[in-house]
Design a protein around this nucleic acid. Structure first.
Lengths: 101, 101
DNA sequence: ATTTCTAATCGCAAATATACGATTAGTATT
DNA sequence: AATACTAATCGTATATTTGCGATTAGAAAT
């Protein structure tokens, strides 16, 4: 049998943990989350003011954090307010905590 | 002034955390670390037996984990014994713990 | 309906990551 | 010196990520 990645079956915990870790694997996203945590919530525009990065790039990072479930967006027209997703944050905390002992 | 990534200055903690997180951002590497932790140490060959992945690919993952400082290799000719780098592991634990509260 | 504003998405280019097989390097042992 | 064994590295192909500017979408307010 050919030795190929297609045969791997990962444990669900490993997949979840890797997904969270991947989302945390960029310094900009770490600092976005730190900022978010400090302010409890914020708008995309706030981040554009704080970070010397293009608006589209920030939007992309937010999308990744959202996809990983670490943040959530709430419509506050004409803006969107982003907050930390506490439920998944807690899930991540538990996973990392258990993994790192 | 042009809004470009070159102007970003990251906090050292964010860089460290992102580096660890990036290394953890792949399920194979998570499971390698889990295995390593269970056995306390292991050889590359053990992993090749356990995971249905090419030897070169495993070696690559080990290299990344080593670069991130999460593991360390010890010459045990003709093999190399890999162990978790407890010092950096602890550092990562503290960083994640503080970050995730 | 039109305007205004914010944030997402598109399109592109460049850099990284992931996987593989093949080869090389390094270290005993013979 | 030659052999045997393990693990790293090379070379390559493909996929994903990261960044940007430009455009589009969505929701209020006029």
């Amino acid at each position: 049998m050919k030795r190929t990645i297609e045969n791997i079956e990962y444990k669900q915990n490993s997949l979840d943990l890797a997904l969270f870790a991947k989302a945390l694997g960029h310094p900009t996203r770490i600092e976005i989350l730190k900022y978010l945590d400090n302010q409890s919530c914020c708008f995309t525009g706030d981040l554009v003011d704080v970070f010397p990065i293009a608006q589209s790039t920030i939007s992309q990072h937010l999308k990744e954090l959202k996809n990983a479930g670490l943040i959530q967006g709430e419509l506050k027209p004409p803006k969107i307010r982003y907050c930390i997703n506490k439920e998944n944050w807690e899930k991540a905390r538990l996973l990392f905590d258990e993994f790192l002992q």
